[in-house]
């Protein structure tokens, strides 16, 4: 098992009232799964994804990731854990505008103490795999949305994570671009066994996954 959430609660206090963002979430994810999280706006999809990605904390419950109990870990260990195993893909790509495609891909490697030559090889490999060798020296602003997201996915993958968390990865893309990204996810999942959890509004995209989780007001339905 890759990760397990047990009775996860997350809330904020507002005007003397406790508003639940996540309410009693239980979830088990095996390696190699492709899960789609669905639900209306404000249902807690992104919050759940952030909790899984250890970017956000929760108030109650247990979270085990690869046999580590995340809820007992110190902040520093927690961030080490996600840096090691999790790759993120964002709706608005979040590429660094000042870096070229190549440099954006290289960035995660910089922080993992890879040698310069290794980094070069890994970036070249990734550019090759995603068919964007010709774009390596362009800046994000010079790419289309679909191409940017392609880079975003490549960046998430470059350090070989076990899990990819994608928050509405096609939210800003047109249908053709969406299709391409989803095909890519499917391929990664099938051929390379990467575990993927995506948040999506689209039934069509959700259908690419092996399992769908529906959320409403912070609860699993």
């Amino acid at each position: 098992m890759l990760l397990q959430l047990k009775n996860i609660f997350k809330w904020v206090n507002s005007g003397g009232q406790r508003i639940f963002l996540l309410k009693d979430i239980n979830l088990e994810v095996e390696e190699g799964e492709f899960i789609s999280v669905m639900g209306p706006s404000g249902s807690g999809k992104s919050t759940l994804l952030n909790v899984i990605g250890m970017l956000d904390t929760f108030d109650e419950g247990e979270y085990n990731f690869l046999d580590e109990s995340v809820h007992t870990l110190k902040e520093k260990h927690r961030s080490n854990l996600y840096k090691e195993y999790i790759g993120f893909v964002f709706q608005s790509y979040h590429l660094l505008d000042d870096l070229t495609v190549q440099e954006n891909l290289e960035m995660p490697l910089l922080y993992k103490k890879f040698k310069g030559s290794e980094r070069k090889a890994m970036v070249a490999d990734m550019l090759d795999r995603f068919n964007i060798v010709g774009k390596k020296d362009l800046f994000p602003a010079q790419l289309s949305g679909g191409q940017q997201q392609l880079v975003g996915v490549a960046r998430a993958l470059i350090a070989n994570p076990k899990l990819i968390l994608a928050d509405e990865p096609t939210g800003n893309l047109n249908s053709q671009q969406s299709e391409e990204i989803m095909q890519l996810f499917k391929k990664l999942n099938k051929e390379e066994g990467v575990t993927i959890i995506q948040v999506t509004h689209s039934e069509k995209n959700a259908a690419y996954g092996s399992r769908i989780i529906n959320l409403l007001d912070g609860r699993k339905v």
Binding site: G53, L55, S79, Y82, K83, G87, F88, H94, L96, D98, M107, P108, L110, Y111, K112, R155, A159
Partner: peptide, 13 residues
């Protein structure tokens, strides 16, 4: 800030 956040999510200390 965006840069900091991103760098942190991809592994910067």
């Amino acid at each position: 800030a965006k840069e900091v956040g991103l760098r942190k999510t991809v592994g910067a200390f």
